[in-house]
Design a protein around this nucleic acid. Sequence first.
DNA 1: TTGTATGCGTTATCAT
DNA 2: ATGATAACGCATACAA
Lengths: 353, 353
Amino acid sequence: MPSFPAARATMPPLPSKSPRLKRVTLADIAARLGVTKVTVSRALNQPEKVSDVMRERVRECAHELGYMPNRQAGSLASGRSQLIALLIPSLSNAVFSELHRGLEAPLAARGYQLLIGHTGYSMEEEERLIETWLSFGVDGLVLCGSRHSKRAIEMIARSGCAVVECMEKREAPLDMAVGLDQHAAGRAMTEAMITRGHQRIGLMAARMDQRVEQRLGGWQSALEAAGLTQDYLMTTTAPSSVQLGSELLAEMLQRWPELDAIFCCNDDLAAGALFECQRRHIAVPADIALAGFNGLEMTRSTCPPLASVVTPRRDIGARAAALMLARLEGDTDATPSGHWEDLGFSLQTGGSL
Amino acid sequence: MPSFPAARATMPPLPSKSPRLKRVTLADIAARLGVTKVTVSRALNQPEKVSDVMRERVRECAHELGYMPNRQAGSLASGRSQLIALLIPSLSNAVFSELHRGLEAPLAARGYQLLIGHTGYSMEEEERLIETWLSFGVDGLVLCGSRHSKRAIEMIARSGCAVVECMEKREAPLDMAVGLDQHAAGRAMTEAMITRGHQRIGLMAARMDQRVEQRLGGWQSALEAAGLTQDYLMTTTAPSSVQLGSELLAEMLQRWPELDAIFCCNDDLAAGALFECQRRHIAVPADIALAGFNGLEMTRSTCPPLASVVTPRRDIGARAAALMLARLEGDTDATPSGHWEDLGFSLQTGGSL
DNA sequence: TTGTATGCGTTATCAT
DNA sequence: ATGATAACGCATACAA
């Protein structure tokens, strides 16, 4: 692996940064225009409450001076920050970036800014982030999953902050919830495999977060209902990756050569398993069937395309945003505390079943 | 694609959320302890400046009351937010999540919180986000790339905010910069293909952001230097995806059946191209060689593993954090405005060359 | 339509 | 080691 040289340098003394000029504030504009700060504030934030000429003069002056509002001051005074924090387990998992996409547009449309925190699948880190964002005065919190530390729950309760819990079925949410039944999804995919005639169906799981455990439960109950063995179970708490999928496949085949299908608890694992099959010239699905979970874009392009459970993560984000907005904009009856929604899922059979 | 039912419900009128109790502030603790707010503030933030007993009494009381500091007020008063914003083009691109990983730990260790904004590869959106975060008083800004709107640059200059520009070589940065020479990287990979004996080397690119264009330039100059044709060029501004890689490969092979190698401007495209080759029973690299860019985890697991340019995005994040911290903590001589670093790259030859 | 007065919760500056 | 006072920049209630 050839490596290419790194370099570093510092440019000749550039014209040093202009000394941090004093911030332009409402008062500056007011002074320049011979009016009071209130008028300026109104001209900018409640334009209808001010005369047309005033409004224009203020705007022009603000632009000229390069005025930039100080939102900390604004939030402090008003008690509302227009900030909503989304806490996700992982940034690199496409599932969460799509959840984020679903949330962002509707929130932005109403003037809310979405903050992202990533917990690394740790409840402690989640607690830390909740504390951080609450102390920055977020108006709302969007969490993943249903398990949170006791202290996190207390802090949230005390703050009175709106909360939507995402991704799982959650019949008694902290506040509101949108998700899908991960257990049912795991069961449905397993049943689909059984329907296709597979009998020795293994399960491969990594990370073992809350949702993976629910999927695993679904796999178990489907097998149990069909009177099939639940012995072919390979789990690890290591982070999921494509490479890990290849490794786990190798290990499972060695331990249980009789396997005729493997349900991988996410698409990365499934892809890795598929690649390993290609390396070993094991035909998928003729020799062994594979399925993943989430239905990421990639699963539709592999050779063959991977079966997967398609989860509506983008819709989940969109609904979470809607609930949050309804709550925040006072439409409180539409979204009482305790409200939850199950957005379902669908099966993509691909070519690997 | 079977679909599974969605459900929604609202639970029976739960014991309604306790009415947002008044926030616990420094003043509450002070009153309870018969001291002033200043003392309480000091006990919590500059423990050494207060007597041992006082410190303990304050801490205990704060805990008892469930005190949570209001950082908006703190920032407003102190002029520093301990907030640093990272603006990335895309959340779903693993390159940026790894950049983020590199940044986060060192910043968190010094008490800074990292904000993430995603621009969708749009300069306008970047400008909007810069405005937003500056108005929230961030102490630092980490940007991707070297092209920013005029207004964005003005706002940054006026704010006096510290800036690190990431990912590209940048010899005259706004403030500081860390990256790699994308042109050189594109050229090096192309040269590696030439060295392997390939003569008709195509390039496949999507999204066409700043860095992709630089890689393309590298490809061109390598071909030019070797006296090879630059005709086999297929670009689209559509977002990159694995599926798109498959489609573009199909189109390129139809147009130029003589191609013996394709340099894909990122790993997703390369993976899609590889899968399409598998579908068509085109041997890689015997019939056609493939290479990607970035060296994502996945490239090491495909069959065969993909050649790729490995970029040190995590290190870039770490260096960016170090520069930012040095600047913010007053160690200003170590990181004068104009400072830049090239962290280099390496080639992973995989099995697809 | 505009202005006055006050408060948001904290930190900074000087004192004591 | 602790306190008094004054910012920080803006929004809100109420008044004119």
